[in-house]
Design a protein around this nucleic acid. Structure first.
Lengths: 192, 192
DNA sequence: TGCATTTCTTAACTTAAGTGAACGAATTAT
DNA sequence: ATAATTCGTTCACTTAAGTTAAGAAATGCA
């Protein structure tokens, strides 16, 4: 299971056995039950998450309504904005499948980084890469209609449509569950 | 004018006179006329931009139609995704007011960074900060209606509404110019 | 300055998303 | 296992955005 993490890291830097052991000894691997809330709005946190198996989601509660903004699945990492800005979190992070995650806090990061400067380099590359990816996703979202967004998702992350509840998907696409149902029916009509 | 850049940098690291001079000697300050296209879709580039004065915008051309995705004004920095990913640009960057920018390429960055490691630190902080900001903006966009987005803009960046053409604003809000006109009229009606 | 082009607004009509309600299906709790 | 809740879909109706077209205003250019 840990190999998933090391495969991920290997895309950015190469690790010695010693370094791998240092990571394992940090004891950051966690098994988390479906439904667990990892972070609550208003809470302060220094934790970052990396998904080895399963799925976590981020959502806001606006006027008593959940607004899902992202899903993170295998090989994806989340550092909530509140960790960077050191302010209370604006959103919730919950686990929507039984999952295996690494949960690591900033302090540990600093400690490891001072021992292994390589890590600093990886973090830098990672956050630049994520920034670029995020920008492109944002642009794509802005320039698409809900229907196009759904079709894109079908292309790029078909697994999400299977594993995520429809009402969360709807909110992720920026529409209501009823509209998603309708939209799906519409697409299905067109196809035949 | 250069002081704007140094004020910006001062928020992250402190510079000696020597370091300031090193930056000035890079000769990265550019005066750019309104309408100038700084980056074209399909083009490769290593240039990053920092706005000292004026405004630049990023846009895609989809089915012959401009889709504006961002505006950068005083004290804002843009590193296009194509610079990070080293692939041809997917979008255009154009200058929508007579502006003063710094235009610096990655190679220069590497050179300066090796001389002044401080810069590396700043870049790291900057890209983490930007990532967090970007995430929050994206979430806000996703969870808002066009009307709410316009009202948000009115709150947070009232200057943009004044200085940017309406049809570019509309596209930035994810709607057509006609819808923006209507939406504005609607809001105006409500107010009185 | 005057002409041409682009931009902004308004209007009528079309299309798609929001809303409220209903109902069966699926999931969760007891 | 059964009751209770949550979830997904459908429907009728409302509201807002897309579309097409036209005219007025602003801008750029010669």
């Amino acid at each position: 299971m840990q190999d998933i993490l090391f495969d991920f890291i290997a895309k950015y830097i190469s690790l010695t056995e010693e370094e791998k052991n240092a990571i394992i000894s940090l004891d950051i691997f966690r098994s988390v039950k479906k439904g667990t809330i990892l972070l609550t709005a208003g809470q302060k946190s220094k934790d970052s998450y990396f998904v080895l198996k399963g799925c976590i989601r981020t959502y806001y509660i606006v006027d008593g309504e959940e607004k899902t903004t992202a899903f993170y699945t295998e090989m994806e990492a989340l550092t909530p904005p509140c960790v960077i800005s050191k302010t209370p979190s604006e959103y919730y992070v919950s686990c929507i499948e039984d999952s295996i995650l690494t949960i690591s806090n900033t302090d540990m990061g600093v400690e490891v980084n001072s021992k292994f400067p390589k890590f600093d380099i990886m973090c830098r590359i990672l956050s630049e890469e994520l920034l670029a990816k995020q920008q492109i996703d944002f642009d794509k979202f802005k320039t698409s209609s809900p229907e196009q967004r759904y079709l894109n998702l079908l292309q790029n992350r078909p697994d999400l449509i299977q594993r995520v509840p429809q009402h969360q998907l709807a909110s992720y696409l920026g529409i209501k569950p009823q509209s998603l149902s309708r939209l799906r029916a519409r697409i299905f009509e067109k196809k035949r």
